[in-house]
Write a protein that binds this DNA or RNA. Structure first.
Lengths: 225, 225
DNA sequence: CGGAGTGATTTA
DNA sequence: TAAATCACTCCG
């Protein structure tokens, strides 16, 4: 059920165990904490603490506390290394999105996630969008464009949506977003999951759009510069 | 200038405070971080974060986060720095992309698109020499992203769906988004908090999207500045 | 689990 | 390159 199993850690001397505990609530819900246990059962919560204990018996310079593995490329600059490897990029994408989820301050999380990287932001001026516009504008512009051009409109929405007062629908417009939030009975864990999924959705969209827009920008600038 | 006293910030609404903290160790020792505190005590660590919170309540275009003062000559953001006729170029661009819209096998397309280094992506869609020998990759990515973002999460509790985002990829949905959060139980202590958060979330998102969609509609219907 | 403090990454 | 933003560690 839970991710609380202590696993062997090959990167450390025999007998050392690693454990990862997922945070269940609060601002950092979904994030995890990593612990290590010495052969004698002593718990270690950070790399410095581990280092102090092991002294020079083990060189932790390349030891990545979170993953529990030795990272040859020394420092955490490994991230940089992967940046240009397409496969790693794809992996990182999912990993990042799935992990960097905040559940509590959802409002800000979502808005921040929806903020588009440079590519799209640059594009926004192409779309003639005013200074006031948020990045959402561009997202919607794209969405609308797609919609108006080739995406068929299926039926509106389920009855659930219609009943909900929080819903926002504008049938006169190509882009509709409906929020249906029913909270009769709440179970916190459930919320986290749902919110996390929503964050994931947004993340996926933003990321894909960012990449696409980046190309667009390059194209357009290449033509005009 | 020095330590870490919270000072009033005249450039912001009454009650906002500014603080500068010098980093005392590590590689970045000696550098400083600037924080702001809302009247309610919430801490802000960057201008974007501040912006998101203040919304259009305060125009931060000229606000210099580090100094805490308005700098009239500082308009770095959202400014017209486009080169030729961006609007038509952009329109043309999207229009072209839209024609090759494909809804099948979007999963793979998205993944492939995300894997491609941006240089390759640009080339492939410019020259039509991509792996799929079409220049629809970008658009498909966008379409997929939109689909993903648009796929409502109905109340269903498919475990598969929760764990595999790709499952959403092939759904055909209008550009309507329905968020359904089904709550069962929640610890009483947290009910208020969560409800408050959701309310805020709804309000912000609905408003943001409404404005965005409106802008998009006007833009695409030919509104020319 | 929170969050101040610092590293890492992105932007200008 | 530095500055700004963001992410994460680490310890209470």
């Amino acid at each position: 059920m839970m991710e609380r199993r202590r696993t062997d850690c090959p990167a450390l001397p025999p007998g050392w165990k690693k454990e990862e505990v997922i945070r269940k609530s609060g601002l950092s819900a979904g994030k995890s904490d990593v612990y290590y246990y010495s052969p004698t059962g002593k718990k270690f919560r950070s790399k410095p603490q581990l280092s102090r204990y092991l002294g020079n018996t083990v060189d932790l310079a390349c030891f990545d506390f979170r993953t529990g593995k030795m990272m040859p490329g020394k420092l955490q600059k490994n991230k940089q290394r992967f940046k240009h490897d397409p496969l790693s990029l794809a992996k990182l994408f999912w990993e990042k999105r799935l992990k960097g989820l905040r559940s509590s301050d959802v409002t800000e999380q979502v808005l921040r996630t929806m903020r588009l990287p440079k590519g799209v932001q640059t594009l926004s001026f192409l779309a003639g969008i005013g200074p006031d516009s948020s990045d959402d504008t561009l997202l919607s512009a794209i969405a609308s464009a797609l919609h108006m051009s080739s995406v068929p409109i299926m039926g509106q929405t389920s009855g659930a949506a219609e009943k909900n007062p929080a819903i926002w629908l504008n049938t006169s417009q190509p882009l509709c977003k409906a929020f249906t939030i029913t909270d009769e009975h709440i179970r916190e864990q459930e919320i986290k999951v749902h919110k996390a999924r929503r964050s994931l959705e947004e993340a996926l969209m933003a990321d894909s759009l960012a990449r696409a827009a980046e190309n667009a920008r390059e194209l357009l600038e290449g033509k005009t510069t």
